[in-house]
């Protein structure tokens, strides 16, 4: 049993590594348990470049866990994660971030003691290189970093339309703007893959429209988006492909219309 699993892995692995154009993300039989609960159960799928893939599922289906495992917050129990052909399974979160996977959070997780601009600048962290000594003595690499990161962060704020609030504190922002700050922060590391955790939950209709526009502009800039969301109209209108999780299992995958018609999906959402 065990050996056959390994063989399957090896075959999949060689396939992935032999591909000419690496995909932004390959997930192979990814599993994660919390105690007795299988949050993720042998989940396998790929994400193509410049696409918008959504992950949906009822509450507790393992959607946020999936993002957490891919971005390295928790190590997976089993399975492999490849980012652009590189095995990132079990790497620490900061390494995965510096490879180019950005994320936002369901509850924003903004840095409340920092200003809006400073939040965006922490997002640019991987783009600087000066260490503690250079920073403390304020010598060359630190000074250059500071200037560049400030400009880059400001650009990101401009892109999401929050440049006016750069020096405000996070606590003075309404929810919609906080979510945008989370986006600007994640864009700071210039990710190739951006994982959004419930980006439109709690937003008003016009804010959702703005976000859709922003997401399309990101795709034009070459990003790949992975979205976890509950808002069905938003998911169905924006996604090229939808993946459905239920109790840690992938129960469906395909274009929005197919998924909507899928019996298993209807059952998972509405019950028997």
């Amino acid at each position: 049993m065990h050996t056959s699993k390994v063989l399957v892995h090896n075959r999949d692995r060689s396939e992935i590594e032999s591909e000419e154009n690496y995909l932004p993300l390959n997930v192979l039989r990814l599993s994660k348990r919390f105690g007795g609960i299988h949050a993720l159960n042998e989940v396998t799928f790929n994400i193509e470049e410049k696409s918008i893939i959504s992950l949906i599922g009822p509450n507790g289906a393992g959607k946020t866990t999936f993002i957490n495992v891919v971005t390295g917050t928790y190590p997976p129990e089993a399975g492999m994660i490849y980012f652009q052909g590189q095995n990132i399974t079990g790497l620490p979160a900061h390494k995965i971030a510096s490879l180019g996977i950005g994320r936002t959070f369901q509850l924003q997780e903004l840095f409340l003691s920092l200003t809006v601009l400073e939040n965006a600048m922490v997002g640019c962290h991987t783009r600087g290189r000066a260490g503690m000594f250079a920073a403390g003595l304020r010598i060359h690499p630190a000074k250059a970093d500071e200037k560049r990161l400030r400009e880059e962060a400001m650009e990101n704020l401009k892109m999401i339309g929050l440049e006016q609030r750069a020096s405000d504190s996070i606590s003075s922002l309404p929810l919609g703007e906080r979510k945008l700050v989370g986006m600007a922060r994640a864009l700071g590391m210039r990710p190739k893959l951006l994982m959004l955790d419930e980006p439109v939950a709690g937003l008003a209709a016009h804010e959702i429209e703005n976000l859709v526009r922003l997401i399309h502009s990101l795709i034009d800039r070459g990003l790949t988006l992975f979205i976890v969301e509950h808002n069905m109209p938003f998911v169905m209108s924006i996604s090229e492909r939808v993946i459905v999780l239920d109790e840690g299992f992938k129960i469906a995958e395909g274009p929005p219309d197919d998924v909507r018609a899928n019996e298993k999906v209807i059952k998972a959402y509405l019950g028997e």
Partner: peptide, 22 residues
């Protein structure tokens, strides 16, 4: 500085901080 902001950021949220590459 960049390092100092990173330090203040993990005080506020470790998970967000490490997800930003800190």
């Amino acid at each position: 500085s960049r390092v100092g902001r990173a330090i203040r950021s993990f005080h506020d949220s470790e998970i967000a901080s490490k997800s930003m590459g800190v």
